[in-house]
Design a protein around this nucleic acid. Structure first.
Lengths: 110, 110
DNA sequence: CCAATTGTCAAGTGGGTACTTAAGTAATTT
DNA sequence: AAATTACTTAAGTACCCACTTGACAATTGG
């Protein structure tokens, strides 16, 4: 019937933190290294690395290390998980409103 | 520092908690009272009330008390805030991919 | 009125987590 | 080889937050 997606918890938890959302905002402009990601945020590099771990485990971000530089990029499927959940809630809500509308439009002399 | 929409923080923080998402899932099926909301969750009524406060402050839920019953309903605009943020990230990401595609397609008889 | 229903408020607790510092590793530059 | 760059890891701290308990309204049904 409806199976539970395990990723959804991690995705929304990851998006719940402002610093992590700032990271995603930056990453949506294109791939970038860890230290350049850290520059605009006023937290230490170590904190950024920790956020990146959370983001990577949630499937929102993908990273790859070549040489001494780790390049981070956004993983579009991650945001889709969140978008789909929101879409699902909206659709059931709208479906209910439709049923309500049908009842009101029904040809009963009440 | 950064001037951002204040609501976004609260909305995503609210959505970050599984119990609160469960509440929203239930509410998307239609308005319901606090105690009936609490039934399927294994937390106390008091905890549900606290979650409802967060949800209401974030603009995701609207409640109204008549008699001794508080009826809760979903506030569609709240979810839109989250959906828009996700949409914005996606569009800047896609815009960038388009520019990349243009560069690759631009000069050449291949 | 009495009692059950339905929710509210306050305070406390335990676990989680965002952040820091500090020390370490590995790749590049000079 | 030495210095610099770019992370990585570990450990500690302080704060936040989800949840509980328990006492307290306020409404409503018998």
């Amino acid at each position: 019937m409806h199976r539970k997606k395990p990723g959804i918890d991690r995705v929304f938890h990851a998006l719940g933190d402002p610093s992590r959302r700032a990271i995603i905002e930056k990453l949506s402009e294109g791939p970038i290294s860890v230290s350049r990601l850290a520059e605009p945020l006023n937290i230490t590099l170590a904190a950024v690395v920790q956020h990146l771990q959370v983001l990577e485990e949630s499937g929102l971000v993908q990273t790859e290390k070549t040489g001494r530089v780790r390049t981070c990029r956004i993983e579009p499927a991650g945001l889709s998980v969140a978008a789909e959940w929101i879409g699902d809630r909206r659709s059931t809500w709208e479906r209910r409103l439709d049923r309500l509308g049908d009842l009101l439009a029904e040809p009963g002399e009440n």
